[in-house]
Design a binder for these strands. Sequence first.
DNA 1: AGCAGGCATGTTATAACATATCAATTCCTT
DNA 2: AAGGAATTGATATGTTATAACATGCCTGCT
Lengths: 159, 159
Amino acid sequence: MAAIGFCAHDHTACVADLMAHARAHCEKEGLKFTPVRQRTLEILLREHRALGAYDLLAQLADEGLGSQPPVAYRALDFLVKAGLAHKIEALNAYIACAHSGTDHSPAFLICRGCKAVAEADTAMTSGRLGDAARAAGFQIEHTVVEARGLCPSCQEPAR
Amino acid sequence: MAAIGFCAHDHTACVADLMAHARAHCEKEGLKFTPVRQRTLEILLREHRALGAYDLLAQLADEGLGSQPPVAYRALDFLVKAGLAHKIEALNAYIACAHSGTDHSPAFLICRGCKAVAEADTAMTSGRLGDAARAAGFQIEHTVVEARGLCPSCQEPAR
DNA sequence: AGCAGGCATGTTATAACATATCAATTCCTT
DNA sequence: AAGGAATTGATATGTTATAACATGCCTGCT
Ligand SMILES: [Zn+2]
Ligand SMILES: [Zn+2]
Ligand SMILES: [Zn+2]
Ligand SMILES: [Zn+2]
């Protein structure tokens, strides 16, 4: 339930650690962690915020790794399917997963001030959404749980 | 917590009732419920599913109520701000509110079989998302809670 | 009546996000 | 070596959303 993203941390180590996890995960699952895919994940990891596909594409293009939309979308699809990244539906943007590779149902806290996004973990079938689904006989396959608001730092100026 | 949308009901009465609520709500709040806005809500109410802005626009255009994107988006913005409709972020589509005008934090169950969407009500600060936000000191302003899956009817064929 | 301000609408253009399709290559298996 | 699956390259297109500016339409004031 910890929501990292709003607090300072050793980011270099954080990135290295998650990249190592990703490499190991792909190895284990027999997935091809190609240069474009690695670079895409690195770019997402550098920020603790969501990037649009075209923002990402611009960075890839700067490095000569492709310049057309499908390049970015293919890499993002791969990462999302592998559980290494998530799409933030409310922003039409993408973010690296903070809980490397494991199958989970994330919930996001999105700050409208500084654009930071924190990933918290929830159980899909618990909570209000699960209750409503059970009551309706609805079989959940995927959940989108996102909150927009202000992070602790961005609440300061308003006080 | 009841999730209407997956069960049959007197739809003519349902639409008339919600339109009346909407009219009363706009009256009370001093909002202008203009012809385009009324027609937009009626079109959304006719379906218990989400419509894309351009689907909606096509129907408005058929009736001579405007043919350019801003017409649809302005009407939808008005309805959403007035609490008479919601955007389904996971579909980039819009649906009439099933709980007329009152301020609430909806949760949606979206069937991938029949495209029906049911609106359930939740309290924004309760449940897992609220827990995570409190733990992080995050101040929630708006929530997006959506589940994709199969409604009771659409689970049948798979059995 | 004449006018100003606010809001709604009309219209054009463009930004931003996402996918279809097909050819060329790579990489693994038989 | 041959076949097949996955990845990449490249072009075009589809879909969703907003910017920008002009026009009309009420309402309250002089
Ligand atoms: Zn995650
Ligand atoms: Zn912030
Ligand atoms: Zn509602
Ligand atoms: Zn269904």
